[in-house]
Write a protein that binds this DNA or RNA. Structure first.
Lengths: 129, 129
DNA sequence: CCAAGACATCGACACTTGTCAATGTCTTGT
DNA sequence: ACAAGACATTGACAAGTGTCGATGTCTTGG
């Protein structure tokens, strides 16, 4: 019976003392990598939320449009047409990207200008180490 | 007038001839980064599907468990209890991870052993460039 | 051949998500 | 003050997703 398996699952439990204090990650993820052992539920939730923001074609294309814009920023008014969705839908997606910390926005007059947040992408890349 | 904006959205249209032939990416993503201009729909869909596989806490914890296992692989039988979900649910998640190319599996007798696919993670990290 | 155990599949259900039309809130030029 | 335009919010709906219990399919040891 090949079961170091059962044996293993029985004995391994003490390693649970993570430094849960990892910067407290206020709104979004911040730390915690897939390589962590074990990834605690809280970190997993935060990471999952972040990746969920990337799990939509429309949002990926928005990110692509924003990051490739000259000057590194784009007026929201220029994002609706290329995406091919309604204005409320684009607004919705931009909100999700913003709340995930993937983009920053700044209101200038009537317009809102968006730009990507490189540090956030670095974090997520690090989580895929 | 702050409107290079409207001007821009008006004039840019001819760029529509995508090279839809971008390697065809058979089962999963392969190419295409958020930094691509523009990210075509097909690449966006593929990338979104890949990130969707990462957009669940249970799956992230599975990846964490698998990648941190000694020898780099784990028997599926040891993944059910630590995740705290039913066996069918864990099986379901492993299937999604497998189909996303994030893990490989090998049947040995009654058991199935899982290991992560580093190259796949590299691809996704590259997409977040 | 049979019983046991590891996985997979199925059916069902609650919950989430992407989308749009309609409508609301600001800001600006007239 | 007003009309126009850029965004945001709301309400509704179809489609997708995570979860489980029940059941099916293999493989192995007896």
């Amino acid at each position: 019976m090949a079961n170091m398996a059962s044996a293993k699952s029985a004995g391994m439990k003490s390693a649970g003392m993570k430094s849960t204090r990892t910067k407290s990650a206020s709104p979004s993820v911040c730390c915690g990598s897939v390589a962590d052992v074990p990834l605690d539920e809280a970190s997993a939730d935060a990471l999952a939320t972040a990746f969920a923001a990337l799990a939509d074609p429309a949002r990926l294309r928005l990110l692509s449009l924003i990051s490739s814009a000259e000057g590194g920023e784009v007026c929201g008014c220029d994002l609706v047409e290329p995406i091919g969705r309604s204005q409320p839908t684009v607004s919705h997606h931009l909100k999700i990207l913003f709340e995930a910390g993937l983009v920053a926005k700044e209101k200038r007059g009537v317009w809102v200008w968006y730009r990507v947040v490189p540090g956030r992408f670095r974090e997520l890349r690090a989580a895929l180490a």
